[in-house]
């Protein structure tokens, strides 16, 4: 879904893809929520699980356990997440996004933090 508008995509997803806008999501207690439809939210949840697993593996080797954020570029897409620092540290909430452009990573993280604080 990098640039092409999915058949049957909801209006919010179509609008975001057309304007290359960030699609934001929240995840807590094993479930993810977003405004751009279940398929898009499932993609975010999939990316989130992979990134968390990668962070866990890398953190283990480096003895750095607490990951604050993770992002990646794949084709023309940027995807990633940040932990919400205002949430319960024992069971932290996560906010993340996907956008169909290679956005500067600094700007991407900053936008997710703005979303968390909004």
């Amino acid at each position: 879904m990098t640039g092409q508008i999915e058949e049957g995509a909801n209006a919010a997803l179509q609008e975001a893809l057309k304007n290359r806008q960030m699609r934001f999501f929240r995840a807590s207690r094993g479930s993810a929520k977003g405004r751009t439809g279940s398929a898009d939210t499932a993609r975010f949840a999939d990316n989130l699980m992979i990134l968390q697993e990668c962070a866990l593996l890398l953190g283990e080797k480096l003895q750095m356990s607490a990951v604050a954020h993770a992002i990646f570029y794949e084709g023309d897409e940027t995807s990633g997440f940040c932990f919400d620092p205002n949430s319960n540290s024992q069971n932290p909430d996560v906010a993340g996004a996907i956008v169909n452009q290679r956005m500067p990573m600094k700007e991407f993280i900053s936008s997710i933090r703005d979303f968390i604080n909004s």
């Binding site: 990134l51 990668c54 962070a55 890398l58 953190g59 480096l62 750095m64 356990s65 607490a66 990951v67 604050a68 954020h69 993770a70 992002i71 990646f72 570029y73 794949e74 084709g75 990633g80 990573m105 993280i109």
Partner: peptide, 16 residues
Amino acid sequence: GRYPDQLSFGFDGGSI
């Protein structure tokens, strides 16, 4: 079937 080319992880002690 996925090919990410750049990944960044921010930890407490630094980023990779």
